[in-house]
Amino acid sequence: MAELQHRSFSLGRIAALTGNTFTELVRLKVFYFLLIFALLLIGNSLFMARLSFQQEFQVLKDVSLGAMSIFTSLLAIVATAQLLPRDLEDRTIYTILAKPVPRYEYLIGKLAGVLLLLGLSILAMSALFLALLFVREQMLMSETLRETAGLRPEQVQAAIRSLEESAFNANLLPGIVIIYLKAALLAALTLFISTFASSNIFTIVVMVFIYFIGHLQATAREYWLQEHGGGWLAKTFLALVALAFPDLQLFNLVDDIVAGTAIPPGLFAQTAVLGCVYTSVYLFFAWVSFHGKAL
């Protein structure tokens, strides 16, 4: 056994760690609590507005996507925050790292487990959401056809087109991908924080703080770069916010997508790449903090 050359990177080991982390997280009560809450919200969005169909679809989309966003973000933070403390407390981390497992593989496996869970959750929520959208569209479609019976074909066409436009919109899919990437970023950042945090509560509190500041980062950055005057103290503060916090506002695209704004493929790709870069860099930071840590 020992004669075998040790491989410094093994997908097999990472897969084992990922699978185990996933199993661990699926057993979390908070996962079901959040998932059921999100699914209920998406299901209920159907009955929230009794207005025009445009408004109905807008509310349905806003509520569903809002539920997906809050669910994935919260789950990313809460689930990731307890991974390391729990392994340390139960000493399982000793048995894992006493095997020929490099610490970066351990971290990658943990993060990948969270990302797998988030991915499957968002797929489930998207499926429900799109199914609702489709069913509601079909219902309204037959209603519209009944109401417009006898009108000229081009008017019927216009009515149907307007209905289709306000229901499903292909731009929603890149929007959902961006929601997922935002959650991935948050998970990687949480993992990083948890490598030096004293408890998972500390990590969660810090992350909630980062979540809010991160949404204001762009504003701070603009004030800092625009030479608005102000004392050096204010400048330093703004610079710190801009440099140390992620720009989460860049990952909030669904709001405007629901309102009908189209996202050009190039822009979507750039935003998605930025999300992946953030996730990888925070994972790297987690490793820098963790690789020499005394356990």
Partner: peptide, 14 residues
């Protein structure tokens, strides 16, 4: 401010 702008707008609209 934290990603639920559209949702708040819907509530106000209703």
């Amino acid at each position: 401010l934290s990603g639920f702008r559209s949702l708040v707008a819907d509530v106000v609209f209703i």
